[in-house]
Design a protein around this nucleic acid. Structure first.
Length: 898
RNA sequence: GGACGUUUAGCUCAGCUGGUAGAGCAUUCGCUUGACGUGCGAAGGGUCAGCGGUUCGAGUCCGUUAACGUCCACCA
């Protein structure tokens, strides 16, 4: 960068070149280094199906800020990247692509399907990684991982076997959520509840023994063919006479018992509830309690079962391939093959025709849908693999309670406890092909189940060779749960694992606290005996300018790559982190990006200014002996920013940190220091000019370091162009607070000058005095040295041709400015409007008097005087003295005006 | 049905452990100021959602109400 450079910052000319430079330098790579402390972040692996969206952009930016900060602080900072195989999402994409070719999974078979999937992964899996790089992410790409790579697979099998051997993984027929579209079971966490308009159908079931018609209500009449009982509450006085009786199930004319169960709530409806153990979670429990048969009436792809389904089930049962807890399958006869919705209509029509439908009542209720495809899920009894959660949840709760894992913001802890404390077993098997295959084999000779790390040759029980592997794969989140240690080499005890685990900070959205965060915590505790991270920093959603969720269907998503292209990655990063606080959603608008871009441009031009004034001189990046108040002031202010920004970053207050840098750079450094420095650099005192140059370079390059984690590209580009030590700003040492650079008196002095300058400008603006019309300044003050020093500054920034400092002046035909330290006169004869002056003074006097009144009220308040801390009382007293002085000066002025 | 969040200038949002309200954008006025008009200078604009309480003192703590939003929950 030289002084001939463009007037505006052009990120496109800079970013790719600098990213290459970083890659070339190997600065992203972290090694085990016993001389350094480790700092580790594992990336929330984006789905290989994904395109970079604003949520990723925010997530990656926050991580990159933290990792760059720690790297500069001297940690061996590892940001471990990778991608997720995303079983359901990816499989759905491939199935969809095949559908367009007229193919189905079943047609091409498992092996060919997986070949396609891997080819797809090779082709598109790298796309999101390239997009992450565009943001400036300083990931250690040498260590990139994939949740389905060999290492992760080994970890998955190890965990599965260990948990199985401990009895924490089991297989059985349980109630699961079934997605008829994805054709697989999904876990409870994967069900999204949505309010839907539905109906409450009141049915009449005839009682066999008494002939009366028992009224009950249901929202899902299509399940009635699978009813195997009707429940009443044993204490319900209305139905005492029905204990031990039966009802005749309409349409099927099947006799089913009336059972007494606590599930039947006397307060609700008629107090009678139909029991369908195979298709309702509550009914499943009732069924277990009363040993009711389970009758399955839906196929797994969402149709009514028929003769063929029944035959198939019977066949399996005959072959001994089923267990005792298997549901029966019903031939639904005329309804067979209908979708559940078609069946609902047909069954209702038939019920009505038979006089079994009493009434239809509209009802709003929560319906479970699949989080991937939003199809209504069917609760179904199905044979699946589960993780027994309770023993795993206990320590996971404990480690948050005792503070070994901290969630930010801490309200997330309540959400976490609520989930963990009410956790149910985790259904981990999926009827999908793309994923980690379940390491379980079934012996068709003796029926033994073999769970093993490696494919077994023979059945360990009977020695037979007829072993068949379970066709199912594992929930994607099963492998993501192991991410913090599987990526570091576990189950091997690698040096990396020893050094970098546990990781330090996990940055992620609150929307995956259950899917991922909770599961990593219990997995880390179980397999590593240590929680996987110390802090979880949650961020919210990035919404559109109206506050709506960005979504494909709404078409309101903003593509981060386009924003980068138009405004630069630094501007995007700055936008995402500014004004953003943990756990809260944010609104994204191009106006904000444009403001950020302007900030980048401001920095660029400050640098341009420095170059124009420095390049022709030999300037070292070294602090000169500080002689002037302005030099001391800017260094002192910078020094405070170092402390505060470091402190904010350590407390994960990224938004606060970045706005402090913004204020310092734009307001203090550009608007004040640079303007003030111009005086000396254009002046005759060579030594003083040189000092100003060095201060400019020194403060600028260090401020760039502080800003580097937030805006990596522009800070590197400029830092390189200034005198510097080291190869790259990103591996330069983070600035540290230095007590010897604190100059409170100089700060006080500059604040006094600024107050006068602002007053002068204000007065001139009010009177429409053009800048070119210089005027004298007379400054009456008790502290003349403060203003003597700053004469040149007052002259330039206060548009004065001459500044006179003294104790007392009588300047006729002048406007005046009263600050807390001085009374300033500007002689402006013909421009002075005495009436306006009087009004203005009166206004200021009123406001000062009002303030003084409240101060006096406090000082006269005995309770305040006795109970408020000493420093607060002293502050108020001093304030009162200032106000009194001000009022005295203002009053004098008023008198002089007459 | 539970739990939580938000409510601060026209808009978007900061405001940490209570000590006289801030920023950006927008608005108004004035500026070719030798870095920058993606800029400079100046100005206007807030009973910090309502009510009650604790306190010498509350945007900040407690209670309560309202609106909006989110999560959880098996309600038939």
């Amino acid at each position: 960068m030289t002084k001939e450079l463009a007037k505006a910052y052009e990120p496109r000319d800079v970013e790719d070149r600098i990213y290459d430079f970083w890659m070339q330098g190997g600065y992203f790579h972290a090694e085990v280094d016993e001389k350094k402390k480790p700092y580790t972040i594992v990336i929330p692996p984006p789905n290989i199906t994904g395109q970079l969206h604003m949520g990723h952009a925010l997530d990656e930016t926050m991580q990159d800020i933290l990792i760059r900060f720690r790297r500069m602080q001297g940690y061996s900072a590892l940001w471990l990247p990778g991608t997720d195989h995303a079983s359901i999402a990816t499989e759905a994409k491939i199935v969809e692509a095949m559908r367009k070719e007229g193919l189905t999974k079943e047609q091409i078979g498992r092996e060919a399907f997986l070949e396609r999937a891997w080819a797809w992964k090779e082709k598109f899996g790298g796309r999101i990684v390239e997009q992450l790089k565009k943001l400036g992410s300083s990931c250690d790409w040498d260590r990139e991982r994939f949740t389905l790579d060999e290492g992760c697979s080994r970890a998955v099998r190890e965990v599965f076997v260990k948990l199985y051997e401990k009895g924490l993984i089991y297989r059985g027929n349980r109630m699961v959520n079934w997605c008829p579209h994805c054709n697989t079971s999904i876990s409870d966490a994967e069900v999204e509840y949505k309010t839907q308009d539905g109906h409450f159908w009141h049915l009449l079931y005839p009682v066999k023994e008494t002939g009366e018609k028992l009224e009950l209500a249901t929202t899902r009449p299509e399940t009635m063919l699978g009813d195997t009982a009707v429940a009443i509450n044993g204490d319900d006085p209305r139905y005492q006479h029905l204990h031990g009786c039966h009802v005749v199930l309409p349409l099927l004319n099947k006799e089913i018992p009336i059972v007494c169960d606590e599930h039947a709530d006397m307060e609700k409806g008629t107090g009678v509830v139909k029991i369908t153990p195979a298709h309702d979670p509550n009914d499943f429990e009732v069924g277990k309690r009363h040993h009711l048969p389970m009758v399955r009436v839906f196929t797994y792809d969402g149709h009514m079962t028929g003769a063929a389904d029944k035959a198939k089930a019977d066949e399996l049962a005959a072959a001994g391939k089923t267990t005792a807890d298997e549901p029966e399958v019903l031939d639904c006869g005329k309804y067979a093959g209908m979708t559940t919705m078609e069946a609902r209509k047909a069954i209702l029509a038939d019920l009505e025709a038979g006089g079994f439908l009493k009434e239809t009542e509209p009802l709003q209720h929560e319906v479970g849908t699949c989080y991937r495809c939003h199809t209504t899920v069917e609760p179904m009894v199905s044979k699946q693999w589960f993780v027994h959660m309770e023993p795993l949840a206990k320590p996971a709760i404990e480690c948050v309670k005792d503070g070994s894992v901290r969630l930010i913001p801490d309200r997330m802890e309540k959400i976490y406890y609520n989930w963990m404390e009410n956790i149910k077993d985790w259904c981990i098997s999926r009827q999908l092909w793309w994923g980690h295959r379940i390491p379980a084999w079934y012996c068709s000779d003796c029926g033994e189940t073999v769970v093993a790390r490696e494919t077994p040759e023979v059945c360990p029980k009977c020695g037979g060779h007829h072993l068949e592997q379970d066709p199912d794969t594992l929930d994607t989140w099963f492998s993501s749960a192991l991410w913090p240690f599987s990526t570091l080499g576990w189950p091997d005890e690698t040096p990396e694992l020893k050094y970098f685990y546990p990781t330090d900070t996990l940055v992620t959205g609150y929307d995956i606290i259950f899917f991922w965060v909770a599961r990593m915590i219990f997995s880390g505790l179980e397999h590593m005996k240590e929680p996987p991270f110390k802090t979880v920093l949650f961020h919210g959603l990035v919404r559109d300018a109206q506050g709506r969720k960005m979504s494909k269907s709404l078409g309101n998503g903003i593509d981060p790559l386009q924003v980068i292209d138009e405004y630069g990655a630094d501007a995007l990063r700055f936008t995402l982190v500014t004004g953003n606080s943990p756990g809260n959603d944010m609104r994204f608008s191009t106006e904000k990006v444009s403001a950020s871009r302007n900030f980048a441009n401001k920095i660029w031009n400050a640098a341009r200014f420095i170059h124009m004034n420095v390049d022709d001189y030999a300037v070292e990046n070294k602090l000169p002996t500080l002689k002037t108040a302005e030099d001391k002031w800017i260094v002192s202010a910078y020094n405070r920013v170092v402390r505060e920004v470091t402190d904010n970053l350590e407390k994960f207050e990224l938004g606060v940190a970045v706005s402090k840098l913004y204020d310092f750079l734009w307001d203090s450094f550009c608007d004040w220091y640079i303007e003030i420095a111009k005086i000396r650099m254009n002046g005759d005192d060579k030594e003083s000019a040189q000092a100003a140059r060095q201060v400019l370079v020194w403060v600028m390059s260090r401020t760039l370091q502080l800003l580097h984690p937030f805006m990596p590209y522009i800070t590197e580009e400029i830092w390189q162009s200034l005198p510097h030590e080291g190869e790259s700003i990103m591996v330069s040492p983070w600035p540290v607070y230095d007590q010897s650079l604190s100059f409170p008196e100089a700060e006080e002095e500059l604040l006094g000058l600024m107050e006068v300058i602002r007053g002068v400008r204000n007065r001139r603006a009010e009177m429409n005095v053009p800048m070119g019309r210089k005027a004298q300044l007379f400054i009456a003050t008790d502290t003349p040295s403060m203003f003597e020093d700053g004469k040149a500054i007052l002259q330039k920034l206060g548009y004065a041709d001459k500044v006179t400092v003294g104790g007392q002046f009588d300047v006729p035909g002048a406007v005046s400015i009263v600050t807390s330290r001085a009374k300033v006169y500007i002689p402006m004869d013909e421009l002075v409007d005495k009436e306006a002056e009087r009004k203005r003074l009166q206004k200021e006097l009123d406001s000062a008097q009002k303030q003084l009144d409240t101060v006096n009220a406090k000082l006269q308040n005995e309770k305040f005087m006795s109970r408020a801390p000493q420093n607060v009382v002293e502050g108020v007293r001093q304030n009162g003295e200032k106000l009194q002085a001000r009022i005295r000066l203002l009053t004098e002025e008023m008198a002089a005006l007459q």
